[in-house]
């Protein structure tokens, strides 16, 4: 993710990160069997994460679109207007 220039690709990478975490959650809840059934608390959390990630990506895409409209590029390396 940190070597990508395109904001769009970075957003995709973030989704992959979240998916990885989701996978870990599902795995952990499968790992803890209670009476032969997985612990559903973890799996329920996964649904929340997926939903929230969708919302986040929607807002993210909107910002990327706004960025493209005003600058005709979504290359994040050009975002250096701030002083230090």
């Amino acid at each position: 993710m940190i070597i990508r220039r395109s904001a769009l690709v970075i957003l995709m990478c973030l989704e992959i990160m979240l998916s990885a975490a989701n996978l870990a959650l599902v795995a952990f809840s499968r790992f803890r069997l209670e009476a032969g059934l997985p612990d559903y608390d973890g799996q329920m959390l996964v649904f929340f994460v997926i939903t929230v990630a969708a919302a986040e990506v929607a807002v993210g895409l909107a910002i990327v679109v706004a960025l493209f409209r005003s600058r005709r590029t979504i290359d994040v390396t050009t975002l250096t207007s701030m002083s230090h």
């Binding site: 970075i10 973030l14 979240l18 990885a20 959650l25 986040e56 975002l79």
Partner: peptide, 29 residues
């Protein structure tokens, strides 16, 4: 420009931190 730039930075770094939050939750769980 400044506002958009700030928005993109906050968005991406914030999303990364969200990723770590979920990781942390997963491991604690």
């Amino acid at each position: 420009v400044g506002s958009l730039e700030a928005g993109v930075k906050y968005l991406i770094l914030g999303a990364v931190s969200t990723g770590f939050l979920v990781y942390g939750i997963a491991f604690l769980f």
